[in-house]
Amino acid sequence: MSLLINIDVPDTASGERFYTAAFGLQIGRRFGKDFVELLGWESPVYLLAKNAGTVGAGGDLRRYERHWTPFHVDVVVGDVDAAVARAVAAGATLEAPAKNTPYGRIAMLADPFGHGLCLLQFNARGYDALLEG
């Protein structure tokens, strides 16, 4: 099995600008103007242009203001503070500044399209710290 990440955006050009600037992803392939592959993470990212107001999964209408979903992307980084600064400079909204946790540091953001994401910097113990006492 493998994992692909598909992210709906109102247009691929704005999605490309954000994800390449915020995370250093590179354009892999273009499948027309509304479907772009980005590379640089362990799984490829596909930006799919979908107009706001069109029907998405479960019959919900797509919207690109901030919305909640139980599924989001955690981006593991070496320096969460630097990654937050880069993402915000690229257009992300910082929703919860980086804080220390037993497993490292985490910050919560939203991309310019309303999708939530977290930036996570693991310490030496990582999630194993949650197994202790």
Rank of each mutant, 00 (worst) to 15 (best):
L109V: 02
R62K: 11
G32N: 11
Y19P: 01
V75Y: 11
L47P: 02
T12G: 06
R86H: 07
A52C: 07
D81C: 05
D60Y: 11
T20Q: 08
A124I: 15
Y19M: 08
A110G: 14
D11H: 11
V80H: 00
G133A: 12
E16R: 06
A83M: 07
E37T: 01
T12H: 03
D11I: 10
E132N: 15
T12R: 06
R63P: 07
V36G: 00
F18E: 05
M1D: 10
N6G: 04
E132G: 03
E37K: 06
A90S: 03
K50W: 13
R66Y: 09
L119W: 00
G58W: 02
K99V: 10
F18V: 02
A98C: 13
L130W: 08
G28S: 14
I5S: 12
P97H: 06
S14F: 04
L130A: 04
L4R: 04
D60R: 14
R86M: 02
P112Q: 10
E65S: 09
Y103W: 15
N51F: 01
T101R: 08
D128Q: 10
D79A: 06
P102W: 13
D81P: 04
K99M: 14
G78T: 14
G59R: 13
A13Y: 09
M1W: 08
R17Q: 07
V80W: 05
P70S: 03
I106Q: 05
P44E: 03
V36N: 00
W68A: 12
T12W: 01
A110Q: 12
V75P: 00
G53D: 00
A82D: 08
F31G: 09
E42A: 08
V88F: 02
L94K: 07
R105T: 05
D8G: 08
Y103M: 10
A21Y: 10
G133K: 14
I27D: 00
G40C: 12
S2D: 10
H115Y: 15
Y46Q: 03
I27F: 01
P97L: 08
D11S: 12
A49Y: 04
V80A: 05
L39D: 15
P112D: 02
F71Y: 09
D79R: 04
N6D: 12
R30S: 13
P97G: 09
A85M: 03
T101H: 12
R29T: 04
N51W: 06
G53N: 06
N123Y: 05
L119R: 01
G56C: 08
R125G: 13
G91K: 02
T54Y: 01
L119D: 01
K33H: 01
G40S: 10
R66Q: 14
G133L: 07
L94V: 05
F23D: 03
L130K: 04
Y64F: 09
I5Q: 02
G15V: 00
H72K: 15
L61Y: 12
K99R: 14
D74Y: 15
A129Q: 09
F71Q: 15
N100E: 08
E37L: 07
G53P: 04
E95P: 01
C118M: 13
I27R: 07
G126H: 10
R125T: 15
I7G: 05
E37V: 04
H67F: 12
G114N: 00
D111K: 07
A129M: 01
A89H: 03
D79P: 07
I27C: 05
G91R: 02
G58H: 09
A21M: 08
